[in-house]
Amino acid sequence: MRQIVLDTETTGLEPEQGHRVVELACVEILNRRVTDRHLHLYLNPDRDSDPEALRVHGLTTEFLSGHPRFPEVARQLVDFVRDAEVIIHNAAFDVKFLNAELRRAGLPPFTELCGKVTDSLMVAREMFPGKRNNLDALCERFGISNAHRTLHGALLDSELLGEVWLAMTRGQDSLLGEASDEAADAGAGAAGAHGRFDASGLPVIQVDEQASQAHEAYLDGLDKAAGRPCLWRQIDRPVELEAHEAAG
């Protein structure tokens, strides 16, 4: 499923009190790689931001007054997230604001427009219980530079969260992927009377160029996190590893 990382900035904390979305950004992930495709909108909320919110995002009423109102650009959001898994940090906050904006525009709730919503904050809390799991803390934990994040901005935060999400979800579920039931049965039936496994019954899956590039990108991420070639590359390319260590 296509994935979209989404973030918003708002005039305050509660849409029930008339607060509005002032900035919205979506960043696309395909095949576990952030693409060049994104959606970034500044929005005229027809009101001032609370002082606390203004200190966070720095988007003044004067600046926002020159931008479109949400109903004018709502279809851009609908088209961008259609059928995708949308990843949001503290999703309940953003979704309640999006639902309020969509309702004003005469459109269905956000969860009816996309494939699913995944809360990356909840995932982080399960992975790192008892620790800080805001975006800055996760960037620090995974070695992702956020030095340029002096103010909160929806596009920058979406880009950072995209990197964090890929780092958080590096686990590999299966080496074989989703083999057919027939292939699985063949593999299971390949065990002999003494329980020895005969690999000749397993399917041979050829790797195409796209899968190979995705694999290399995955290994690049492991190398970056570890600060050296990962175990897979140590096994697969021992000569290159020795040269790398000698050069270091």
Rank of each mutant, 00 (worst) to 15 (best):
V56G: 02
L176D: 11
Q206W: 09
I87G: 07
A193G: 05
E140N: 08
H148D: 14
H40V: 06
T35P: 04
V34P: 00
A167P: 01
R75D: 15
K96P: 00
I235Y: 08
G130L: 04
Q17C: 06
H57V: 12
Q172G: 00
R32N: 14
D119G: 02
M168N: 08
A25S: 14
E216H: 09
R103H: 09
V204W: 11
N31A: 14
G187S: 09
L175Y: 14
N31G: 07
K116A: 15
G221T: 07
S174C: 12
F128K: 03
T11P: 06
V34M: 12
T150C: 00
R33T: 13
V78G: 07
F197P: 00
E85L: 10
A25I: 10
L64Q: 06
E23T: 01
I29S: 10
L98W: 11
P71Q: 07
P129E: 04
F110Y: 11
D181F: 12
L107T: 07
H57T: 11
E28H: 03
E112V: 00
P238W: 11
A183W: 14
E16R: 15
V81W: 06
K116F: 02
L222M: 13
C114Q: 02
L113N: 03
N90Q: 05
A53Y: 05
L176P: 00
E28K: 05
R33V: 13
P51Q: 10
Q3V: 07
S120E: 02
W232H: 13
S212K: 12
M122T: 15
E112M: 10
E9S: 10
L202P: 01
T150M: 03
P71H: 05
L241P: 01
I144C: 08
D198M: 05
G187R: 06
D220R: 15
D119Y: 05
L160P: 07
N90K: 03
L98N: 05
N133H: 11
T35K: 03
G106I: 13
F93I: 07
A217P: 00
G248M: 03
D36T: 11
P108C: 04
A25H: 04
